Simulated assay, not measured.
Amino acid sequence: MTAYAGRGIHGQIVELLGERVAGGTLPEGAVLDLRALGEELGVSMSVLRESVRVLAAKGLLDSRQKRGTFVRARSEWNLLDADVARWRATGGDTARLMDDLAELRALVEPAAARYAALRHTASQLTALNRALERMVRTRDDPRAHALADLEFHRSLLAASGNELLARMDVLVAPGLVERDVLVHSADPAADPIPAHRAVRDAVRARDADAAEAAMRALLAASAADARRLASPGSAPPDRKDRT
């Protein structure tokens, strides 16, 4: 219960219910017995109702007269919400989250790296360098390292000079931090810094082909690590066209 631990019992209940829904313990359409849940968790109805409101805002739950409080269809979840991504990562939906994220990044970031090499400003290169330095300093802290990694990719998207590409960080960010924490925590010896440095070097040299190739190589290694750790010994579900 990391993100909400400092918010008291209400925050802890949000975390617990979020993990149950995102992880499938509470499946789509399941109706929550709030009184029984309150007795199980030892909390008041007011705490439960406030927690339900938070999860409803994220698209996970809904409350209707005659139907009660129920889990909404997955298609209605806010999958770009950082909390929902974290709950998916910790609740048993890790493989699918990592696979979807890898495919999304493969569509967006190589092009961003190419444009960044052609268009970056001095201040944008400085931001890229600063993020890389943070990654080096935080090697031994998985979450701090993950946040530095996210800063690097956000800086790269911004350096593309394309305002729409720059806003793609809202698509990449929710799952990227959880992916990094998963990989770095499970394999502390893994070092993503050389691959990121190769991207930075190509951008700095204004070599668009090299920047795109370096980003593709980074993403391929990243996806392989995440897939191996999220679902060891098996392929991600619902994927028939692995390439």
Rank of each mutant, 00 (worst) to 15 (best):
E19A: 09
A158W: 03
W77S: 05
A173S: 06
A159E: 09
R49D: 12
G24R: 02
A3P: 07
L182Y: 03
A226H: 03
A223L: 05
L229Y: 04
A189T: 13
R88I: 00
D33P: 03
A102S: 15
R206V: 06
Y115T: 08
R143I: 15
A210L: 06
R143P: 07
A85C: 14
A166G: 09
S46A: 15
S185A: 14
A173L: 01
W87A: 11
H153A: 02
P194L: 09
V14N: 08
A189G: 05
R53F: 04
R7D: 10
I13W: 04
V108W: 00
L132D: 07
S123R: 12
P232V: 10
L157F: 05
H153V: 00
L107P: 01
Y4P: 04
M98A: 11
S234P: 02
T2Q: 12
H196S: 05
L171V: 05
G38A: 13
R134K: 12
L128F: 03
M168D: 05
D100F: 07
G11K: 04
A214G: 03
L55C: 03
E212C: 11
E212I: 03
L104T: 12
S75V: 12
A117E: 07
A223F: 02
A22C: 15
S222V: 00
A5E: 13
M1E: 13
D149N: 12
E133M: 11
L156M: 11
L101M: 10
S44A: 14
A211E: 02
R200F: 06
I193R: 13
